[in-house]
Write a protein that binds this DNA or RNA. Sequence first.
DNA 1: GTCTATAGCAGGATAGAC
DNA 2: GTCTATCCTGCTATAGAC
Lengths: 192, 192
Amino acid sequence: MQKNSLMTTRDTIIQVADHLIRDKGFNAFSFKDISIAIGIKTASIHYHFPTKTDLGIATIKGHIERLEALKAELENKSPLTKLEGFFSIYSAVKSENKVCIVGSLATDLHTVEEGIQKELKVLAEKILEWVTEILEEGKAKNAFAFQVAPRTKALLIITNMLAIVQLSRLTKADDFTLLKETIIQELKPKTE
Amino acid sequence: MQKNSLMTTRDTIIQVADHLIRDKGFNAFSFKDISIAIGIKTASIHYHFPTKTDLGIATIKGHIERLEALKAELENKSPLTKLEGFFSIYSAVKSENKVCIVGSLATDLHTVEEGIQKELKVLAEKILEWVTEILEEGKAKNAFAFQVAPRTKALLIITNMLAIVQLSRLTKADDFTLLKETIIQELKPKTE
DNA sequence: GTCTATAGCAGGATAGAC
DNA sequence: GTCTATCCTGCTATAGAC
C-alpha cells in the first residue's frame, strides 16, 4: 500500500490500519507495519494517533461514515439495489481475502479498550438497522418474500456475510459468491 | 479455571488455551495467562508444548476429536436431534460469551503458522461435511425441507452460528437463541 | 509534522538445577 | 515434570531535536 498524494497522512494511516486489522487482527498488527507500508516512522504515527486505541476508534468511525454515505447514495434505489449495495461491501472484503471489521474486532472484543468496544457496537447497530429497513421496504413493495421478522431476517443475512468471508478462507473462496447469490435468489417472491 | 485432579496437566493446558483463544484470540493470550490459571510456571508449559503453535494445533485436534465423538454418539438419532446436537456446541460457546474456535482462528489466519492453518482447515471441512450429511438425511426422510443444495444450506446454517456468537457480543445476547430457533423452525416441512 | 533515540514492558523460548 | 533465571525480540509510547 502506497500513500496516495491526494490523501492526508492521517487518512492514509487509517486506511492501512483498516486493512491490517481486517487481514491480521487488531492485536497482530503494529505501528511498525504501518510505518513500513507508508514510509513514515512509528513515532510520527503517534503524532496523529496518540494511542493504538485512538487509531482503532478512528478506523471504526471511518467505516460508519462510509456506511452512512452508501446508505444515502442508495436512498432512492430499489430494495434489491440497496441489498446488492450492502453485499458489495463484503464482495470487496472477500476479493482481498480479508474479513469484515465487525467480525475481526468482535473476536478480539475482550482485549480492546472500552472506546473501541463502544464504537464497534455503534457500527454493528447501524448495519443491523439499515439491513432491517431494506428488508422491510422490500417486503412492503413485494420485492422480497420471507416469513420471519425483518430484524431476524437481517440477522440471518448479516451473519451469513460476516462468517462466509471468514469460513471461505478455510473452505473455498467461491463459497462467498455461492452464498451471496443464494440469499438473493431465496428472497425473491415465488410466482405461483 | 482450576486444574481438575482427574485430568493430566497436558489436557488442562489445552482446555485453558482453548478458552483463552475463544475469549481473547490466539495473539492476545499468553503462556503467562495459562500459568496463572492453573498454577504452573510458563517454563513448565513449554515442557508439554515446545511452542505456542504446538499448543494451538493440539487445541484444534481436541475440537476435532470432540466433534467426531459427538457425531458417533448421535449416529442413530433423528436428523433433528443431530442438528440440535450440532447447535448445542454453539449454545455452550454463547453461554460463556466466547466465540467459535473456527471464527476466532480464521480472523487471525494470516498471523499463525502453517500447522495451525492446516489443522483448522481439517476441522472446518469436517464440520461442513457433517452438517451437510445431517441435512441430506433430513431431506431424504422428510424431516427437513429446503430448496438449495445440502452443502449450500449447511454453509448458510454454519455461518449463522459462527457469526451470531460474534455479533451478539455487540447486539443482544438473546439474538443467539432467536436465530437458533428460527433456523430450526424454517427447516420444518410446511404441512399444507 | 517528522525525525532519532530510548524508555519500559511483555512476549516466547531456553538452560540447567532439583 | 516443575522450578529459577535469563535471553532476545518486538511492542507501545515518550522526549526532544530539526
